[in-house]
């Protein structure tokens, strides 16, 4: 059970948090102007990234605030957390590993 660093509360047990899916998927400005396909993309389609992924998290049993995080979906490790009004950090393919190369 890992620790997740809430940007407001600091590191807390994983069980205090709820997952909120892919981050940076804003509600469309004018849904009425979207085609059915465009609207369906917003409602139903999300990335399924292997590696670093920008996600929404909610500190459900703590401060109850939403925040964003970059997490590696292959290792589960959180690489950074940031507030909703912070810009999205660059997400590169390079996954940070828990391991160092020395034996």
């Amino acid at each position: 059970m890992q620790l997740i660093a809430c940007p407001w509360c600091g590191p807390r047990e994983e069980v205090e948090f709820h997952y909120g899916g892919q981050a940076h998927v804003p509600y469309p400005d004018s849904p009425a102007e979207l085609s059915d396909e465009e609207w369906a993309l917003y409602v139903f389609f999300r990335d399924n990234t292997k590696g670093r992924f920008a996600e929404r998290w909610n500190h459900t049993t703590g401060c109850r605030r939403w925040f964003n995080a970059i997490r590696d979906t292959t290792t589960y490790r959180f690489e950074s957390v940031y507030r909703l009004d912070d810009p999205k950090p660059p997400v590169t393919e390079l996954a940070r590993s828990r391991r160092s190369t020395a034996p």
Partner: peptide
């Protein structure tokens, strides 16, 4: 109302 959560989906075939 011009929009509310769910409205656009009501227009799906």
């Amino acid at each position: 109302k011009p929009d509310f959560i769910g409205k656009r989906s009501f227009a799906r075939p």
